[in-house]
């Protein structure tokens, strides 16, 4: 079985986000692998351990993705493929989806896995875009991936703790919510060693033509800083809490 794990890096939210002229200065920011993609990679590696599947990590070259790819190789991925086409950090998901689908089409992967979401997917999640472009079955918000010969079983999560087990024929695309185990640690030395001994394959691809969204501006919503205080009257505070719950749709109807 051949598994592709689609990964990308996203701005590190730990850093203060500075907005300049209604946009993010992406080129000056530090990037980290999207946490859900890490989950997808871990789940794929677990499947590899169980079934001997071959795991290929695929990322679009929008800057420095080599670190992410060598880390994946050090964790146990078999191949790392970088799709190059002079893309910028601003490459939208619709475009990413098209590029990735195009590549996956040529490779005949049995299973394509990626994170259920990323913090920057303003125009939809990668799993959906890729699956839609490939016109293959897919499921998102899933975990517990058990791969068989021709099908894959997954558990999909719904709100309120409800879940369902789904069975999809292969090939399929999955948006992973969480791996069965926390993503494994890989030592700095091992990544460094892989950088010396392994290589990332580069595949040239062409930029797709789909239109992009027009974003007028990006801004910071008002920050809280300190709690808004409700005083100490028990009745009043209870009332306020109930209202808040209602507002936020957190009450069971």
């Amino acid at each position: 079985m051949r598994i592709a794990v689609l990964m990308k890096d996203v701005p590190d939210l730990v850093e203060e986000l500075e907005v300049e002229d209604g946009a993010l200065p992406l080129d000056d920011m530090s990037f980290v692998p999207s946490e859900w993609d890490d989950q997808a990679l871990e789940e794929a590696l677990l499947i590899k351990e169980e079934t001997g599947a071959d795991v290929t990590v695929v990322a679009i070259d929008t800057g420095e993705v080599d670190g992410l790819m060598f880390t994946a190789l050090a964790k146990g991925a078999d191949r790392a493929v970088k799709l190059a086409g002079g893309f910028s950090r601003r490459l939208a998901n619709r475009q990413r989806g098209a590029v990735l689908a195009q590549y996956c089409q040529t490779q005949g992967f049995d299973l394509v896995m990626t994170g259920v979401q990323a913090i920057d997917d303003l125009d939809g999640q990668i799993a959906g875009w890729v699956a839609g472009n490939l016109e293959v079955g897919h499921a998102s918000v899933v975990r517990d991936v058990r791969a068989g010969a021709d099908t894959v079983k997954v558990v999909q999560e719904y709100s309120g703790g409800k879940m369902a087990e789904l069975e999809l024929p292969l090939p399929a695309v999955l948006g992973i919510q969480a791996a069965r185990k926390p993503p494994r640690y890989v030592t700095v030395a091992k990544v460094r060693q892989l950088q010396k001994t392994a290589s990332v394959e580069t595949v040239d691809v062409s930029e797709p033509t789909a239109p992009t969204l027009s974003v007028r501006k990006i801004y910071k919503p008002e920050a809280a800083g300190h709690a808004q205080m409700w005083g100490d009257d028990v009745d009043e505070v209870s009332e306020k809490i109930v209202n808040l719950l209602e507002d936020k749709k957190l009450l069971r109807s």
């Binding site: 939809g124 959906g128 699956a131 499921a139």
Partner: peptide, 9 residues
């Protein structure tokens, strides 16, 4: 989350 982007595609 499941259907949105897939439908768009």
């Amino acid at each position: 989350m499941d259907l949105g982007a897939a439908l768009a595609a």
